[in-house]
């Protein structure tokens, strides 16, 4: 529990600015139209995900406020939902998010090695971000691609059948592409 609270505190203490872009606002209207008019709160999760995508992969306090205005709910209700789902992040993440599946099927196929290789190469632990803000490493439950175990999701692409060496090569390639 205490971990969740520190995350929330971090989210509250950030004094970043956030407002939805024009495209996002159009998107929000579109999302809201899917649900009955009297139930705008149904759109909450999708709008939170939208805000997260626009705000470099995490939801800051101003973003929470903007979402709350969008769905006509108190900020606290929005925070309640945002802190519940593991897909939503309330603290800053790196520009590349590496999610490694470590549940049964992937675990049997060596996701532990992948995790260790990443931790060694990046010099960070699970749920941490590198000092240069480039990579975040996350341990996630089932990505739904058990037949391609071990599965890894880097940003928004899913990769399967990886071994530790291929994994470090991938990270290296990513790091170099950013430098260029």
């Amino acid at each position: 529990m205490s971990k969740a609270f520190t995350q929330i505190e971090q989210a509250l203490s950030k004094t970043q600015r956030f407002s939805f872009t024009k495209e996002s606002l159009i998107q929000i209207e579109k999302i809201k139209r899917k649900y009955p008019e009297s139930k705008p709160e149904s759109a909450l999760l999708e709008i939170l995900l939208l805000a997260q995508r626009q705000n470099e992969g995490w939801i800051s306090h101003p973003a929470l406020e903007a979402v709350a205005v969008g769905v006509n709910l108190p900020v606290m209700k929005v925070l309640e939902v945002a802190s519940f789902y593991p897909l939503l992040s309330l603290k800053p993440v790196g520009s590349h998010c590496v999610r490694i599946c470590t549940t049964t099927a992937c675990w049997l196929k060596g996701s532990t090695d992948l995790g260790r290789a990443c931790q060694k190469w990046l010099g960070i632990g699970w749920e941490e971000t590198t000092v240069d803000g480039m990579f975040t490493l996350k341990e996630v439950p089932c990505l739904g691609d058990c037949t391609k175990a071990p599965a890894v999701q880097i940003n928004e692409t899913l990769r399967g059948n990886l071994n530790a060496r291929e994994m470090t090569h991938l990270l290296q390639a990513l790091a170099e592409s950013v430098k260029k």
Partner: peptide
């Protein structure tokens, strides 16, 4: 639902 082991849904 993301029950470990079930890849059929995807």
């Amino acid at each position: 639902s993301n029950e470990p082991g079930s890849g059929t849904e995807k």
